[in-house]
Design a protein around this nucleic acid. Structure first.
Lengths: 229, 229
DNA sequence: TAGATTGTTAATCGATTAACAATC
DNA sequence: TAGATTGTTAATCGATTAACAATC
C-alpha cells in the first residue's frame, strides 16, 4: 500500500511523479472535490478567473491552505490575477481521476445499495456500476436502476473477466469481511466500505470507509452540545 | 467525570461536564462508533473484559490512542484487567447520545434519500425519520419505507410543532441551501448534509457533511496510486 | 506604477505516539 | 508477588496558519 521509503537513500533522483503523488495529505484530498463544486458554479456564472481568497471565503477556509491544495494538482496561477477557472477545474478533475471512469461492482443490494446504484451523479466522479451482487435469490436476475443483480457465486469470475478494480460494500456488518474477500479474490483493489466493520485487506489493496456512522455520531454529539447550554 | 484539574486547586468541585464536552477532538469522535461495533461482537462471543491493546489490534490503532478516546466517555478501567465490555459499550453509547433517539426530517426523497429512509440501522444510532419532504408532487402523499412524504410548504410549520432538531439533506447541490434555510426556519439545529455544497447556517446550528464525494475521491486517488506502479 | 495575489518558507497548533509511574 | 494494563505527562509528527519575497 502506502509504503514509505525508510531512509533517504538517493530519494531525490527518483521519479518525482511517484513520490509526489504519495505526499498529498489526506485532508487536502478531501477538500478538493469541494473546490470543483464551487468552481463549477463560478463557471456557470461566466467567471473566468478566481483567486484563492475568493475560494477560501466561500468555503470558509484559509487562503494559504487553498493555495497549497491547488498546488498539488500542478496548476499554476498568475500573481495579481488568480487562476483560470476552466483550467483549474480541469486540473483538479484530472488529478482526482474523475475523467478516467472506473467500472465498479456493488455488493449488497439492500436499501443503501439500491440508492447508490440509482445515484446518477457518481458518473461525474468517475464511478460507474456495472453489476450488483446479493445473496438473496429473490433479488437475483433483476435489475436495479438498470444495473443487473447477480448471485454472489458469479462475483469472482466476472470481476476477473471484466477487470473490475473497484468494489462498493453495502452489506451488513457480519457479512462485510466475507464479501470483501470475494472482491479481492476477483482482483478488486479498492473497496468503498459502507458497512460499519473495519475490513482486512491483502497488500496493495485500499479500503476507504464511507463513515456514515462516524459523521452521524459527530452530528448528534454537536447537537447535544448546542442544546445543552 | 474524566478530567483532572490541571493543578490541584479543588478543581473537583467545578462543573466539568460543559467544558469537557467541547474539548473532545473530532478524530476521537469519529473513532468511537467503531469501538462500539467491535465491542458488540466481543459481547456476542461472551467476552466480559477487554484491554485497549486488544481493541487497538483489531482496529489497527495505537493502544494509547484508544485509551485516550475511551477516557472521554468517563469510563474507568482496571489496571492489569482492562475494561468491562458491557460497561464500556454503555459508556460510549451514552456519550455519543445513541440512547436518546432523535426524530429527524429528511429533505429530498430521491435515490439517496429513499435509501436512508429505509436504512433500519440508523435506529441503533439514535436517528428516527418521522417525515420526508420533496418538491416533486408525484412523490407527495405517499410513503417511503413507512415514512410519509410531504410537500416542502409543510416543512417549517411541522418542524416547529413537532420540535424536530435534526434535518437530513439529500437534495441536489443547487437546492441545498434553500432547503437548509427552510429547515432552520423550522427550528432545526443540526443538518446532516449529503449534498456536495457547503451549507451556510445561522449561529447555534451545526452542519456535518456526509462527505460521500470526499471519500470516493480518496478511494479513486488511492487506486490510481496502486495501479500506477 | 501600486497593489493584489501567488508560491514558499517559517511558526504555530493540535493530534498521535512514546515513556513511565501507579496499580490491581 | 510479578507482570500486564491503566492513566497521564512528555516527545514527536504532521497539518494549518502566518509571514513575506516574487510578480504581473
Amino acid at each position: 500500500m502506502t509504503s514509505k521509503p525508510a531512509d533517504d537513500n538517493e530519494g531525490d533522483a527518483v521519479e518525482l511523479s511517484e513520490v509526489d503523488l504519495k505526499v498529498v495529505p489526506e485532508p487536502s484530498l478531501r477538500r478538493l472535490p469541494g473546490y470543483v463544486h464551487f468552481l463549477r458554479t463560478l463557471r456557470q456564472r461566466g467567471r473566468e478567473v478566481v483567486s484563492t481568497t475568493h475560494i477560501a471565503k466561500d468555503l470558509r477556509l484559509d487562503p494559504t491552505q487553498v493555495r497549497k491544495d491547488l498546488a498539488y494538482t500542478g496548476i499554476i496561477g498568475r500573481p495579481k490575477v488568480g487562476y483560470d477557472v476552466e483550467e483549474l477545474i480541469a486540473a483538479i478533475e484530472r488529478f482526482l481521476g474523475w475523467n478516467n471512469s472506473n467500472d465498479a461492482f456493488l455488493v449488497g443490494a439492500g436499501a443503501l445499495g439500491t440508492a447508490l446504484l440509482g445515484h446518477e451523479r457518481f458518473a461525474e466522479y468517475g464511478l460507474r456500476f456495472v453489476a450488483a451482487f446479493d445473496q438473496d435469490p429473490s433479488k437475483q436476475g433483476k435489475e436495479i436502476h438498470g444495473v443487473p443483480v447477480l448471485g454472489m457465486h458469479k462475483l469472482v469470475d466476472l470481476a476477473r473477466r471484466m477487470h473490475i478494480h473497484i468494489g462498493v460494500l453495502t452489506v451488513p456488518a457480519q457479512g462485510a469481511q466475507e464479501a470483501a474477500d470475494l472482491l479481492m479474490e476477483g482482483g478488486i483493489r479498492a473497496i468503498w466500505n459502507f458497512s460499519p466493520r473495519r475490513i482486512e485487506v491483502v497488500p496493495d489493496t485500499v479500503v476507504v470507509d464511507a463513515e456514515l456512522y462516524s459523521t452521524l455520531s459527530l452530528l448528534k454529539r454537536n447537537l447535544t452540545l448546542i442544546m445543552g447550554r
